[in-house]
Amino acid sequence: MIKRYTISILVNDQPGVLQRVSSLFGRRGFNIDSITVGGSEQTGLSKMIIVTSGNDRIIEQIEKQLNKLIDVIQVSHLSSYPMVERELAFIKVKAEPSERPEILGVVDAFRASVIDIGSRSLIIQVVGEFNKIEAMVELVRPYGILEMCRTGTTAMIRGDNNQ
């Protein structure tokens, strides 16, 4: 059964580490659905959050391969635990003045916000889990999406557990 998996990778903050991790996925024929990289709570270390799809065997193989990389400090399979995950999207939508009240109703329903208003467009900012972003995109698609950009998923285990 194919499922989405979220993996956290603590790595040395060195040039080329992102390339080595992403090329490992490519060489093995695994797709990266989403990747975010940024600083961590430890100086000199960065955290990568990778979302990929597969089955349990594939994820186990990915984790083993990642642990073989020199600059990888820790690999954690976040999807095995209750976690908090978020993604950010900016969606530029065609919005004639007569359509704006209807679009704003969708924005309010998703607890999103309008961050820019043009003469014939709106830029909507929406934050949430992957499925929330997907639902928002589908609801504004009929108005005409002019442009869209999304961050990757970032995630953390809930509660007092650390990974």
Rank of each mutant, 00 (worst) to 15 (best):
M1E: 10
I2A: 11
R4K: 14
Y5R: 12
S8E: 06
S8C: 08
L10D: 05
V11T: 09
N12P: 08
D13P: 03
P15Q: 09
G16T: 04
V17I: 06
Q19H: 14
Q19Y: 12
R20T: 04
R20Q: 14
S22T: 14
G26Q: 11
R27W: 02
R28W: 09
F30Y: 15
N31C: 00
I35F: 00
I35A: 09
T36W: 06
T36I: 04
T36L: 01
G39D: 14
Q42C: 02
T43R: 12
S46I: 00
K47A: 10
V51R: 05
V51A: 10
V51M: 13
T52M: 06
G54A: 07
N55W: 00
R57D: 15
I58Y: 07
I58V: 15
I59W: 05
I59M: 11
E60I: 06
Q61W: 01
K64C: 00
Q65R: 05
N67T: 05
K68P: 03
K68A: 10
K68E: 09
K68W: 06
I70D: 00
I70C: 05
D71P: 04
D71I: 03
D71Y: 00
I73C: 00
Q74D: 13
Q74H: 12
S76V: 14
S76W: 07
H77M: 12
H77C: 09
L78H: 09
S79M: 09
S80L: 13
S80H: 07
Y81V: 00
P82L: 07
M83A: 06
V84H: 01
V84Y: 13
E85M: 13
E85F: 05
A89D: 09
I91A: 07
I91M: 05
V93F: 09
K94P: 01
A95H: 01
E96I: 07
R100T: 10
R100H: 05
P101D: 04
P101E: 10
P101T: 04
E102Q: 13
E102S: 14
I103R: 04
L104N: 13
L104Q: 02
G105W: 10
G105S: 13
V106T: 12
V106M: 14
V107W: 03
D108K: 10
D108R: 11
A109L: 14
A109E: 13
A112T: 02
A112P: 06
A112N: 01
S113T: 02
S113I: 01
S113R: 12
V114T: 12
D116S: 10
I117S: 00
I117F: 10
S119L: 14
S119I: 14
I124K: 06
Q125H: 12
V127G: 04
E129K: 01
N131I: 04
K132H: 08
M136D: 08
V137G: 08
E138M: 12
L139D: 03
V140H: 02
R141N: 01
P142N: 01
P142V: 04
P142Q: 00
G144R: 05
I145W: 03
L146E: 15
L146G: 01
L146V: 15
M148C: 02
M148T: 03
M148I: 15
C149N: 13
C149V: 15
T151L: 01
T153H: 08
T154V: 15
T154I: 15
A155W: 04
A155S: 03
M156A: 11
D160E: 14
N161V: 15
N162C: 02
Q163V: 14
